[in-house]
Simulated assay, not measured.
Amino acid sequence: MTYENILSNFSNGITTITVNRPSKLNALNKVTIEELHHAFKEANSHKETKVIILTGYGEKAFVAGADISEFANFSVENGGKLAANGQELLFNFIENLDTPVIAAVNGFALGGGLELAMSAHFRIASDNAKMGLPETSLGVIPGYGGTQRLPQLIGKGRAMELVMTAGMIDAATALNYGLVNHVVSLEELLPLAEKIAGKIMRNSSVAISKAIKAVNANFIDGVSGYEVEIEQFGACFGTADFKEGTTAFLEKRKADFKGH
């Protein structure tokens, strides 16, 4: 598929998806959200893809927010539909993918951009990154999961302050808060993402997909994460990867996982 606002490239087990609207600081609009959904769905179904890296084109922005011009005149009903559709199509979709997703945050990640980064399984950032949820300065609140994922990641008090002040934090503060796992120079950002992806790819992709389900279950109302962990742990015993992993360990050799 040919994309208008994103790039998707596969190499050595990694699919890199890049938001490519530099003239708009990579802001999310309806078309971009739909293209991202398609690209993530395609990468997740691509058997050779073991890790997905998500980033923004250029040096200034990961994603600087949503395209406000698209919804400035929306009604209450349309606003609710915008949030519901976006969460289902992209943000929740990414969070629940079987394939690990690393967000490589380069520059501004604001509003929907930070929400997009938070939907990834974890984040790394360049030292010029700036992150925040400025929605209250526009008379609205984060609608793509920001009020839920940010407190999960950095705690209620810090999240409340960021949302209420509509402020930004720098990469060092994001690292201190636990919002990102690593901070490096812009030049080192994608190489680090690829290095971490390489470490992930040494392990069983089928086990990783089950781990994602178990970890995410802890944040679903009415679901016992412990019960999901038990279920997914047991399911691992029926996989070829489990047999290969344990056999390789006992034979003192490197496992050759096939992902099933």
Rank of each mutant, 00 (worst) to 15 (best):
E229W: 13
N106D: 06
N181R: 13
D256L: 07
V63R: 14
L82I: 07
S126V: 08
L175M: 14
E35T: 09
T246V: 15
H260C: 02
G13R: 15
A214H: 10
R158F: 13
D241L: 04
Y3P: 07
A240N: 12
A159E: 08
G132V: 03
I230Q: 15
G234K: 06
L138E: 13
M118I: 00
G234M: 11
M201K: 10
L110M: 11
E70W: 06
N203R: 12
S75G: 08
V180Y: 05
E188V: 00
S11N: 15
E229Q: 07
V101E: 02
E35V: 03
G145Y: 05
A172P: 03
K41I: 05
G112W: 02
Y57E: 11
D241N: 03
K243T: 11
F249A: 13
L133P: 01
T15A: 08
A83C: 12
S126D: 14
L190R: 08
G80S: 04
S119Y: 02
R253D: 07
A64S: 14
F93V: 05
V140T: 10
N176E: 15
A248F: 01
G65R: 03
A217D: 04
A171Y: 02
G157H: 01
T147I: 12
I94H: 07
E187R: 15
S11F: 11
K258V: 15
L133E: 00
L28D: 03
H37R: 08
A174H: 09
G222M: 09
S23H: 12
A240R: 12
L153C: 08
V228N: 02
Y144F: 15
K210A: 13
H37W: 04
I53K: 07
L54E: 08
R202A: 04
E4R: 07
E48T: 14
E231M: 11
F10V: 08
E34R: 12
T32V: 01
N9H: 14
S137F: 10
E34K: 15
V184L: 10
A103R: 03
L190H: 07
A84Y: 00
L190F: 05
I124H: 02
N218T: 12
A159P: 08
V51P: 06
F233A: 14
V31Q: 15
M131G: 09
Q232M: 15
I6L: 13
I14Y: 02
R21A: 07
A84L: 11
M118V: 00
N20K: 04
M201D: 06
A217S: 05
E95D: 10
V63C: 15
V223H: 07
S185H: 09
